[in-house]
Design a protein around this nucleic acid. Structure first.
Lengths: 211, 211
DNA sequence: TAGATTGTTAATCGATTAACAATC
DNA sequence: TAGATTGTTAATCGATTAACAATC
């Protein structure tokens, strides 16, 4: 496959690509543009136009002078680079309020993610469903991951148990962990951890309100 | 008040302060340290020790050679700088799954935040409670904010209505918006918006899993 | 004292922005 | 062609890390 010698994309770039994609592919119509310029995107998303062109260049996109970029081509390219055109399966650990909110959100499928099971230790939850996803007992976690080739685990467990659960996930062969519990996790270098530490936001909010 | 001439703290610094605070004040005992060195903190949180000293310096903390910093003093200072020792009141807009998860979390009070009401347009929800918090109709939003001197709004509305709701919040005099909806909000410069765009994380995860 | 740790200045690194020739 | 837009190199900015004298 040609063009696959592009350098590895950094986190900030990936996030901007996601923002471009959402704006181009998902924002409300009234402007079904065929072409778009870096300036238009920059204006809408409050990003420097040079940055937009650099990011597009980083995924091999070429624009045309005076015309800009083809919307369809940009979307296709981002979708491909970010892997939205694959389907990958995930499990969720900890079917509490946040876990249920994430399962109910139901907006991840369009980016390729399917949550196929949730795991919890609470006997009252086990056997039930949340947003159509079955809740299973923790002891069945490892065989389930192995059997169904699960790549991603979404972690919404209490902080105290997160590392222990993580160790089990890693030994079962998980490839990425989306961590919503407020703890730093230790994993082997080939496992990706994406931290979503919501309460860090409170530092900024409280500080601002204090002023 | 002396010492208030410290430069404004940046977002990354605030987040690190939050992490120091959680580790020092909230991590499980077994090591009730009286003093702590920048090296110990650095090791635990995977941060450069120089960075820790710089951050402490930025909030006016002084350590002692050979001894480090007094834990109690560090905690008190962070709590004060970040404003955790004030109580401030917040409302939540959009009592969906995520909104309910945030209200149920109940861990914000220790940082000074009290969620006193939720607002929603759904007649089935209005009048009820979620995690002990009353759910009120949207039309009562503005007077409520004014009457109770609400500073913060937590926004978990669908993306399409977020800007409209934001405009109402701003005109009611809100000071900060904690935005969980995947949209960029436009606000006057004195209103803080903290974005918590969870699905940006998917870009990193999908990209990693594709490799 | 000897040695570990702080506080601070300098060096490095990476990301963002500016400038501008090449292009359509 | 004239003019807007790209693609790329250089400049700037800010944050992180290294180095090291001062301190307890």
């Amino acid at each position: 496959m040609a063009g696959n010698d592009l350098p590895r994309l950094r986190r900030v770039v990936l996030e901007r690509l996601m923002r471009y994609y959402r704006w181009l592919a998902e924002s409300t119509p009234k402007k079904p543009l065929k072409n778009v310029t870096s300036g238009q995107i920059a204006e809408a998303l409050d990003i420097d136009p040079t940055q937009v062109r650099k990011d597009f260049g980083a995924i091999g996109l070429q624009g045309m002078g005076r015309v800009g970029f083809e919307v369809w081509e940009v979307c296709r390219s981002i979708r491909h680079m970010l892997g939205f055109d694959h389907t990958y399966y995930g499990v969720l650990i900890g079917a509490g309020h946040l876990g249920r909110a994430l399962m109910a959100y139901n907006g991840f499928a369009r980016y390729g993610l399917q949550i196929v099971a949730a795991f919890d230790n609470d006997q009252h939850k086990v056997g039930g469903k949340a947003a159509g996803v079955p809740i299973k007992p923790m002891r069945t976690l490892k065989p389930f991951i192995r059997k169904h080739d699960i790549r991603l685990a979404i972690l919404t467990t209490p902080a105290e148990v997160s590392q222990k659960v993580t160790d089990r996930l890693v030994s079962a062969g998980i490839r990425a962990i989306w961590n919503f519990s407020p703890t730093r996790l230790t994993v082997p270098p080939d496992v990706l951890v994406r931290n979503e530490h919501i309460s860090l936001g409170l530092s900024q909010i409280a500080y601002h309100l204090k002023q």
